[in-house]
Amino acid sequence: MPPAVRFRDAVSLAGRFPLLAGVTVEVGEGEVVHLRGPNGAGKTSLLRACAGLVPIVSGAAEVLGHDLVGDRQSVRREVGLLGHRSFLYEELSVEDNLRFAVRAARAPVAGIGPALELLGLTGRIGGARAATLSTGQRRRVALAVLVARAPRLWLLDEPHAGLDAAGRDVVDVLVAEARRRGATVLLASHELERAATIADRAVTIVGGQVVAVPAGAAPAGRGEEPLVAGEVAARPAIVGEVGCDVA
């Protein structure tokens, strides 16, 4: 089975600034992979590249069989991105936002009700305008969109941020459920311990590149100690060159 995500020396630029400085990574179908690294390392950029939102200017990048170098659009219906922003229309209600996103993705509208219920968005809140929601509630709506769309590849950027304890647990359940259904999950998170409990393995990004796990350290995974120290300090030159304010 071909990998869900395959990047080889992939470079992405914002103007002349490197967002990804030669990323090489493979993620298998059905895997849950934790992306970690310091602020500005390129985690968000990698997730956005997987969603076809930023161009790959050199190297190779393939997601779910779509060649992102030649065509960034065709992959988008098959991926779901939970970004720093919620992608919601302020004037539309929670339900209207979900209905639009689901119909646009050509996903079955029957999935809207269960998604709202799962994220605790039923009742009055379902009819509330997105503009009136708190940060955590907006996050829940964005997650509900992903659940209702049921993409093949979940791209989660700090999925626990802004959520209360119950909401953070729901995220973990959603990731587990996505994996059970055969979806692939890439999640960027600074919450190393929590991410380690839901991810199969971790990939470290520094300065827009995937860096090797230090010798002697076990790869982070379920039940294993996540890697924390070492990588950033080991590559100060790269961080200094391209790592700041990248993502």
Partner: peptide, 19 residues
């Protein structure tokens, strides 16, 4: 302007709708 708020424009691109 409605597409600029809260990254809705990115959401529109991600939706897979025909341009």
């Amino acid at each position: 302007a409605v597409e600029a708020a809260d990254g809705a424009g990115d959401g529109l691109r991600l939706s897979g709708l025909d341009a």
